[in-house]
């Protein structure tokens, strides 16, 4: 681990000043990912600004009828919140499907969104990795890539984003509120928070240096049944091979609302508006779910070890949509 200085920020002003003062400063919240990466010297910040004590730990109702989740709300707190459990169950399910109880107790909402990929080659400094060392190549592309992306990847990087929570927030059309070192705030639709790798997989978000996530805004409750289905190699404490967050509303036999997001398949939670669109107004049927699944995976590219994710994702989408459209 590279030596670093540490600052506990009591106020937002201090935190932003601390981040502005050192080019390689990092905010640290739960530290469940950053500390591991620092020990391996994959992250090498010269200065850490501890933002755990900033006043972003509340969950408040918004004027629009949604919820504003402070960036420092712990994953376990968020999953247990009665409003999340009753109105946004897909988010509660996704949170509880992630990590372990101990990690969820520590991990924050903002930190969860900014956790980095679990690509084995990213984690090993002896290996080529364009995300860790731009221009060095991608060892996963022709290597062991069972966990890797089938959608939105490039020859430069096939890593996936590991968050479950972000997949649920994506299907909920959440947005991310930030503040930068000039104290300018903005809202970023969650679909724009994570970038696809292209030729610059080292640039993972549009966040500027020193820009901090302060909250996640959930829009008002959407009608429909929620489900988060995570497929993994063991029953707990494993990253998703494929996950599906789905919300389906039906009236009689007709689908009146349908949306789904995929996890474990790309560098970001994956939505396919065309696939969702074809469901609207259709009668509930195996065939229409199958069509939606085919559309969602139409551009999928397997890299060998992860080829199975394509049929697996289709089957899981169909399963999730079928369950989410059940009533009674």
């Amino acid at each position: 681990m590279k030596p670093f200085t540490y600052q506990r920020a009591g106020e937002l002003r201090e935190a932003l000043a601390g981040a502005a003062g050192t080019p390689s400063a990092k905010f640290i919240s739960g530290g469940t990912n950053l500390l591991d990466l620092m020990k391996l010297e994959i992250e090498r910040p010269a200065h850490l600004v501890d933002i755990n004590h900033l006043p972003f730990s509340g969950i408040e109702e918004t004027a629009e009828g949604g919820l504003r989740i402070g960036a420092q709300v712990r994953n376990s707190t968020l999953a247990a919140d009665p409003r999340i459990r009753s109105d946004y169950p897909v988010l509660a399910q996704a949170l509880l499907a992630g990590a372990s109880a101990q990690i969820r107790n520590k991990a924050s909402t903002g930190g969860n969104l900014l956790q980095r990929t679990r690509c084995y080659y990213f984690y090993d400094r002896n290996m080529p990795c364009n995300k860790r060392k731009p221009g060095s190549g991608c060892a996963a592309l022709h290597g062991f890539n069972r966990m890797h992306a089938v959608l939105g990847s490039s020859e430069a990087c096939i890593a996936v984003h590991p968050s479950d929570m972000a997949v649920a927030m994506t299907v909920l059309d959440a947005s991310v509120e930030t503040i930068d070192t000039e104290r300018v705030t903005r809202q970023i639709p969650i679909g724009d928070l994570h970038r696809l790798p292209g030729t610059t997989p080292d640039i993972e978000t549009p966040l500027k240096l020193g820009e901090m996530i302060t909250a996640v805004i959930l829009p008002p409750v959407q009608p429909g049944r929620h489900i988060y289905r995570k497929v993994r190699d063991r029953a707990s404490y494993a990253f998703a091979l494929v996950s599906v967050a789905a919300i389906v509303d039906v009236a009689g036999e007709t689908i009146t609302g349908a949306r789904f997001a995929l996890g474990g398949v790309a560098a970001k939670p994956w939505r396919t508006p065309e696939a969702e669109a074809i469901l609207l107004g259709e009668k509930v049927s195996t065939e229409v779910f199958q069509r939606a699944a085919e559309i969602a995976l139409a551009n999928a590219i397997g890299r060998g070890g992860n080829d199975f994710k394509i049929p697996l994702a289709k089957r899981t989408i169909q399963h999730a949509l079928a369950v989410a459209s059940q009533r009674g």
């Binding site: 509930v284 195996t286 199958q290 089957r315 169909q318 949509l321 079928a322 459209s325 059940q326 009674g328």
Partner: peptide, 8 residues
Amino acid sequence: QISRANRS
């Protein structure tokens, strides 16, 4: 044969 759309 995968999950059937099932209204029951």
